[in-house]
Design a protein around this nucleic acid. Structure first.
Length: 166
DNA sequence: ACTCCGATTGTT
DNA sequence: ACAATCGGAGTA
């Protein structure tokens, strides 16, 4: 089966701002390009891009049109269609912890560029509140510029977090 | 046209 | 510690 519904709870995210954020694909020097165009579009859409020539990364555009703000989804804790996700990943461990793994597990690729995340085949649904003590903040992973900006949010103790910290 | 390198992952 | 792998972005 390659059509089983898959999904989980988002447990690790990273925020990226617009021109004022040197680590953002929308940084001033770069401006609007073909690749980051979705970032400048309306919120609630998917900004998908390829990294290192082999992995996909999924962002949720968050700022209003023109502001180019987005949130990178770095990890989910698998809930539905686990077998399908394991099949897509080709391994049982680390199913969807990490931006690349998350996309592979959910079957996300460039076809979803600009997709409206309120509707199938990929949607974000209401979850539940996590009390502040259950969340910790850290610097961003894998970036050179502004790596220390406290924009990474993780659910404490979750197995879906890619690089567990405090 | 050419070079550099990345919001990563898996293996050595 | 390092290879895999390639298109985007900058330079010319």
């Amino acid at each position: 089966m390659g059509d089983a519904r898959t999904g989980g709870v988002i447990v690790e995210t990273e925020a990226y701002l617009g021109p004022e954020d040197p680590a953002s694909h929308a940084a001033t020097q770069k401006g609007r390009t073909t690749r980051n165009a979705a970032m400048f579009g309306p919120p609630g859409r998917a900004y998908v891009y390829r990294i290192y020539g082999m992995h996909w990364c999924l962002n949720v555009v968050t700022g209003p049109s023109g502001q180019a703000q987005a949130v990178l989804l770095r990890g989910i804790e698998p809930l539905e269609g686990i077998d399908e996700m394991i099949s897509r990943r080709g391994r049982a461990g680390d199913i969807a912890s990490g931006p690349g793994r998350l996309c592979q597990a959910l079957g996300v690729d460039g076809r979803l560029y600009g997709h409206d995340l309120r509707r199938p085949p990929l949607q974000i649904l209401p979850g539940w509140r996590v009390p502040d003590p259950g969340v910790y903040v850290s610097g961003r992973v894998g970036v050179r510029a502004a790596a220390d900006w406290p924009f990474r949010f993780c659910v404490r103790g979750s197995s879906g977090v890619s690089r567990p910290g405090a």
